[in-house]
Design a protein around this nucleic acid. Sequence first.
DNA 1: CTGTATCCAAACCGATACTG
DNA 2: CAGTATCGGTTTGGATACAG
Lengths: 122, 122
Amino acid sequence: MALRVRKSKVSEPPPVCPLTACMKLLGGAWTPNVVWYLRGEPRRFGELRGDIGRISAKVLSARLRQLQASGVVVRNAVAGSPPSFEYELSELGRELVPAIAAIVAVGEKLKRRAVTRPAKAR
Amino acid sequence: MALRVRKSKVSEPPPVCPLTACMKLLGGAWTPNVVWYLRGEPRRFGELRGDIGRISAKVLSARLRQLQASGVVVRNAVAGSPPSFEYELSELGRELVPAIAAIVAVGEKLKRRAVTRPAKAR
DNA sequence: CTGTATCCAAACCGATACTG
DNA sequence: CAGTATCGGTTTGGATACAG
């Protein structure tokens, strides 16, 4: 009667949710962007930088390395007069795309809302 | 001939992708977890802490406040002998759930892979 | 052009201690 | 129980300069 009985299961939440596992791959704030802009054809460093916008070279470099280390991104050397490299998603990386796409979808809806609704009554 | 012609469009990437907008809501490493465990019925502070696992009280408090500020989470007072509060997702917050669900789905697949495949040939 | 190195600010997290 | 304050450590990110 006095006891506050409250079911502990929302719908059977996993002990350590896989969320964390996946989020480790998408670490920083820029990581999803890198993967996102790599979802199409292979891109070079400078192109990627231009695509993403205002990411600093250092951060892009760091994220790229991190993503290589976790097996999400592959770096391929392109033989030519100006030796350059191309980055592309690995098979693992491609599996992340749908998740990011879902985030993008929400982001678009959010932006639309922001325009429709003035300011959310602060 | 010598010119390296390279199309700049992957599939028409938006100027400033909505990804960033959405990621701002999902800031820290714990934020998605908080939203995730709030996807069902309203939860109290301690319950949430137990659900998530090893999150410190300070961080949970900070995330909760941040999510309230961004309109993702609502805090409701529950009248009773022990005055307590319940947190639940707002309408906006519910829109984030599918995105997080997608991440969780990938995370599950990842875990399964990790078991199936030994070590990815390091 | 492709990256990396250095310096520096800000955000995030954990542990502990403390108030209502 | 619910939540905040403080201290310290680690990570992330930006700007700039610089090496291949």
